[in-house]
Amino acid sequence: MHTLRRYRLTMVIFIVTTTSVAVGLMSYALRENINLFYTPSSVISGDAPVNVTIRIGGMVVKDSLTRSKQSLQSTFRVTDGKSEVDVYYDGILPDMFSEGEGAVATGEINGDLVFIASSILAKHDENYMPPEVTYALDEAAK
């Protein structure tokens, strides 16, 4: 290969690798900040800050949702499979919010490790299925 071309090729490879390594290290160092939410485990272990606005995320525990009859207040628990955190929310839950599905809550952890949410978002999984198929699967599982 021509010397000049080889020099240019080396330069291009050099630039791409160095920026990749730099960005890689940076995003590794900042991984806690890049995460959108804390897990219930980090709340229980005390890694998540108390009385500061943060987000937590996890699965809504089955049969844990209670809605007040007079107001929009609701409580439920979220889990990451290891730990569970109680969430209290006063507002309209998103349409897609349901037990056994993911949710991300914004709010603060109070002194009793209860999460006081100011907003709730629903998180869904990557699986898509027609309603009849879901119904058939549910029937078969019974």
Partner: peptide, 25 residues
């Protein structure tokens, strides 16, 4: 060329970090 590093980051972001976006279908 410098920006190419962003492509694997976009692709793997849902696996590497906690995101609202679901993993790839």
């Amino acid at each position: 060329l410098v920006g190419t590093i962003n492509i694997p980051i976009i692709y793997k972001s849902v696996d590497w970090w906690y995101t609202l976006h679901q993993p790839a279908t």
